[in-house]
Design a protein around this nucleic acid. Structure first.
Length: 395
DNA sequence: ATGGGGCACCGTCCTTGGTG
DNA sequence: CACCAAGGACGGTGCCCCAT
């Protein structure tokens, strides 16, 4: 994660949290410089060593012995056609007659898809034990075919309808809020989710052209979070926080009610701060009539996830305080390396320090944050473990 | 053997706080 | 005020466990 700056001799902005790791990395680098020449072999070797230094004994390699399904790309296409796209086209036809939702829930198809992408079979449990045989946890969510409503008369509108059937208005509120839900109801479940199993496997189906009101193109994506790895540490913090601050607090108020699960939003601030890596993407065009699938990305099941780059985070997700952190002079090198249009750090500061931040201009010069820049950012208040957590005692 | 309750699946709905 | 992001609540369905 730090090698770019280590090898280019560019300083990294050092937040208090990362200072320790940075120092270790520098030591590793100094040792290496005295013994090896700077060449490609050196880079390969030292990447491994430094990664070890930075991340400790991270597990980022899928367990080969569990990878049993071959010919994945072909099977994925067949599965999507058979289990998702063809049934959906039929459901759309039926909902023209019935006015019922065409949404066939996505849970179990998501498990099938996860098996094909990872090559790892299920554990024959109906998702009551390990979702995948290697222990991975699979979560799916679909933003396709959600129920919409009319902003004028507030009645319900189907996704396939272009005007409100009640009042004829075109002023529709299109829904896009489906997310992954994590149920954590005991210390054991928390430990299982954040320590025992290595991989959280997240799938989502959505419309890439949602903002343009185009619902005929559907995109499937899968992301992985390796929770025992330093790079993905925020996932555990978020889940611990949910369990101690939200779940247990609700139990205290009403022990008989089961508190709601943790809502984990795709493409949210905290999603990106977990450094998810994408392992699969497919785009389906003409999805509502004659679906045609194109696989955009498929990472081979055996691939060491260490070499995959976590998702880039759109700058628009940041608030004023968070932008201010990035604009700190200590972060000069990381930020300047990300700036577009030949802008410099001072241009960035100028935009950020204005009373009203011009978000459009900001996105033009700094569209995305990489994992290094994100490492400078804190989780938001609600995502931090509160002080009182340590005092919590089990009933 | 069976059926009721608990729970895991997720989608949908409600609320709140921030922003423009 | 409208709009949006995010936290939280709740509901329908199906699987599993356990008491009967």
């Amino acid at each position: 994660m730090w090698y770019d700056s280590i090898f280019t001799d560019r300083a990294c902005g050092v937040s208090p949290a990362s200072f320790g790791r940075f120092r270790l990395a520098l030591q590793a680098r100094q040792n290496l410089f005295s013994t090896l020449e700077l060449n490609s072999v050196y880079l390969t070797v030292s990447k491994q060593i430094i990664n070890k230094t930075l991340f400790g004994d991270c597990t980022l390699k899928p367990k080969i012995e569990f990878i049993k399904i071959k010919d994945n790309e072909k099977l994925i296409k067949l599965l999507l056609e058979d289990l998702v796209l063809a049934p959906r086209v039929k459901a759309l036809d039926w909902s023209k007659i019935t006015k019922q939702t065409p949404n066939m829930k996505v849970g179990y198809p998501g498990q099938h898809l996860a098996s094909l992408i990872t090559g790892v079979q299920g554990a024959r449990t109906g998702a009551r034990g390990d979702d995948l045989e290697d222990g991975s946890e699979v979560k799916s969510c679909s933003r396709v075919d959600q129920l919409d409503s009319c902003k004028d008369c507030e009645n319900k509108v189907l996704r396939i309808e272009t005007i409100c059937p009640h009042c004829g208005s075109e002023n529709l509120k299109r829904m896009d809020d489906s997310k992954w839900l994590f149920s954590v109801k005991s210390e054991d479940e928390l430990k299982l989710l954040t320590k025992t199993l290595d991989r959280i496997f997240l799938t989502i189906a959505d419309y890439p052209l949602f903002s343009k009101n185009q619902f005929d193109t559907i995109r499937f994506q899968a992301f992985e979070i390796w929770n025992n790895c330093e790079r993905h540490k925020n996932f555990e913090i978020i889940m611990r926080n949910y369990f101690y601050k939200i779940f247990l607090e609700h139990i205290k108020i009403n022990p008989r009610k089961t508190p709601a699960p943790k809502n984990f939003w795709p493409f949210s601030y905290q999603f990106y701060l977990c450094n998810p890596v994408k392992v699969f993407q497919a785009t389906v065009t003409n999805a509502n009539t004659k679906p045609s699938i194109k696989i955009d990305l498929l990472v081979a099941p055996e691939t060491d996830r260490e070499i995959l780059t976590p998702e880039l985070m759109p700058i628009s997700l940041l608030g004023k305080d968070e932008l201010n952190i990035l604009a700190n002079d200590a972060n000069f090198y990381i930020i300047e390396s990300l700036l577009k249009n030949e802008k410099c750090f001072n241009d960035f500061k100028e935009i950020v320090f204005k009373k009203n931040i011009n978000k459009k201009l900001l996105a033009e010069i700094l569209p995305y944050l990489d994992h290094r820049a994100r490492d400078l950012l804190p989780l938001r208040d609600t995502d931090k473990i509160s002080e009182s957590k340590a005092k919590y005692q089990r009933r």
